[in-house]
């Protein structure tokens, strides 16, 4: 039987792996954006800003879920939905600041905000290459 602390360790490992992936992706996007945008510093600031907030939101989601799974189901529903609204408001404030500020590029902020989702999709969903090879095979050949 896996103890609770060992199981949470696995979630922590996932968090660390996602953070590393996000940093690597953001550095690559910042490097590409440096040559594309007229004001590359604003773009890099935007990516840093968006990426940081995205990871903090991810951390907030983790804390919410850890707390929610120990509640009664109906309480957990209300708690998770209310916390989602808080995260949404935080994202809204970040985007508003990014749109209004001269020092931040909005496209950079968006790239930073969505980077964590791309990392999760890449590491968890599209990590199995064999799956794509099997798409074009008939069931009998698998």
């Amino acid at each position: 039987m896996i103890k609770g602390s060992e199981a949470v360790e696995t979630v922590k490992e996932t968090n660390v792996r996602t953070l590393k992936g996000t940093i690597i992706l953001n550095v690559i996007v910042a490097f590409i954006g440096y040559f594309i945008f007229e004001n590359p510093i604003a773009f890099i600031y935007g990516i840093f800003f968006g990426g940081t907030i995205a990871f903090l939101n991810f951390r907030l989601l983790y804390l919410t879920l850890v707390k929610a799974v120990r509640m009664q189901p109906h309480q957990a529903q209300a708690y998770a939905a209310s916390r989602y609204m808080i995260r949404m408001v935080i994202t809204g404030i970040v985007l508003y600041v990014s749109i209004k500020s001269e020092q931040l590029n909005t496209i950079g902020t968006l790239a930073g905000l969505f980077s964590i989702k791309l990392v999760i999709l890449k590491t968890e969903l599209f990590s199995n290459r064999q799956f794509f090879f099997n798409i074009f095979k008939r069931k009998e050949d698998k």
Binding site: M1, I2, G4, E6, A7, V8, E9, T10, V11, T14, N57, F58, L61, Y62, L65, V66, V69, Y84, R87, M88, T91, L113, F114, I116, K117, I120, L121, E124
Partner: peptide, 22 residues
């Protein structure tokens, strides 16, 4: 005993599900 696995799966799923709202 499956708490860790459940939290991990929910965490990754919910993080991606939020995208449409954003």
């Amino acid at each position: 005993e499956a708490e860790g696995t459940i939290i991990r799966t929910m965490l990754l799923g919910q993080a991606v599900a939020e995208t449409t709202g954003i």
